[in-house]
């Protein structure tokens, strides 16, 4: 991997725009797309690889059936074998209670010294209930003052009526980062624009990405948010080959990549494709989704990441310690 000190950075032309920084994440299925119930060693291996590649975060799948790993617990264990990478758990609001889930996520943020994120999974819950759930969680995270004094909270809403004291002090990031999968309904876009800090999207073409990007961003100001307060990351698969033709041949053997963005080619063309997409405003980055015919995370980290770094499009080292700093997201303002 190429690591440059600032002194070695190539000189820049005056007034040249800095290249957009690409954000990268790795999606780890809970077992549904691999064997039932992956063991901890396989999670550990992937987490270490993604951290070696300086990824922004790992995204663990939700608990969708008995026998599958519970993502928050897996991430707490991964805290012990990683140092910088963000740790995102997919958890839905229909099968949990705000107090209990907010507490578990705040604990993860403490144990990881500020690397926690919550991917608010789509669920059977009406969106209004999900939105109130997230609102309650943020009230709980805000219920301790930044200097460590616990204050009672009370929330009375349409779906939740709770009061008392939260057991966990304000966490290192203030709030764990809130991630949300995009949906195409107007309510879904409003929820993304008002609440999400990372929006996960799934679409096949850069044009569709640009359109959604522009649409959601245009709504941000309406909620008093800045365009940098929301990162849009598209799910993508990567198929590498020694030549573009070989990669295309391999990809053709797999069939259509289920509506996800797909980068197919040599490491050079994949790196160029990723950088161009981000530069063109189609996404702020990509969540790499494993696919039966892809070479796995190691190949991407060993072959594509160094090229992105050479292009100046991706970090050469972690500069901060929290997931918010990796993503360039602001700390939430404390609302006491």
């Amino acid at each position: 991997m190429t690591v440059r000190t600032p002194a070695e950075q190539p000189p820049r032309e005056p007034f040249q725009r800095l290249p957009e920084q690409v954000h990268l994440a790795a999606y780890l299925p809970g077992g549904g797309e691999s064997t039932a119930g992956a063991d901890f060693a396989s999670f550990e291996r992937l987490a270490r690889t993604a951290e070696r590649g300086l990824f922004d975060f790992l995204l663990l799948a939700d608990l969708d059936a008995a026998g599958r790993p519970e993502p928050v617990t897996v991430l707490n264990a991964l805290v012990g074998v990683t140092e910088r990478i963000g740790l995102a758990a997919t958890v839905d609001t229909a099968s949990n209670e705000p107090y209990e889930l907010a507490r578990r996520l705040a604990t993860l943020d403490h144990l990881s010294a500020g690397r926690a994120a919550w991917n608010v999974a789509a669920s059977a819950d009406p969106l209004a209930r999900t939105a109130e759930f997230v609102e309650v969680a943020r009230e709980l995270w805000d219920s301790w003052t930044p200097d460590g004094v616990v204050r009672p909270f009370a929330h009375r809403g349409r779906h939740f009526d709770i009061a008392g004291e939260f057991t966990v002090p304000r966490s290192p990031q203030g709030h764990p980062v809130v991630i949300r999968p995009a949906d195409d309904s107007p309510e879904g876009r409003a929820f993304a624009a008002s609440t999400a800090e990372v929006l996960l999207t799934r679409y096949g073409t850069p044009a569709a990405g640009r359109a959604l990007h522009a649409e959601v961003r245009s709504r941000l100001a309406g909620y008093g948010r800045d365009r940098t307060d929301l990162k849009i990351m598209a799910e993508a698969t990567v198929v590498l080959g020694a030549t573009d033709a070989e990669a295309r041949e391999r990809a053709a053997g797999i069939g259509a990549p289920d509506g996800r963005w797909s980068f197919v080619g040599t490491a050079e063309s994949v790196a160029a494709g990723i950088e161009d997409s981000v530069r063109a405003g189609a996404a702020d980055g990509f969540v790499l989704v494993p696919h039966p015919a892809t070479d796995g995370l190691d190949a991407f980290v060993d072959r594509v990441v160094p090229l992105l770094q050479e292009r100046g499009a991706f970090r050469a080292e972690y500069t901060g310690t929290t997931l918010r700093s990796h993503l360039g997201l602001p700390e939430p303002v404390w609302k006491g």
Binding site: V72, T73, N76, R103, R104, T107, L108, L111, T167, V168
Partner: peptide
């Protein structure tokens, strides 16, 4: 006050 014990 305290963290989630299972997480710890």
């Amino acid at each position: 006050p305290g963290f989630d014990a299972l997480a710890v």
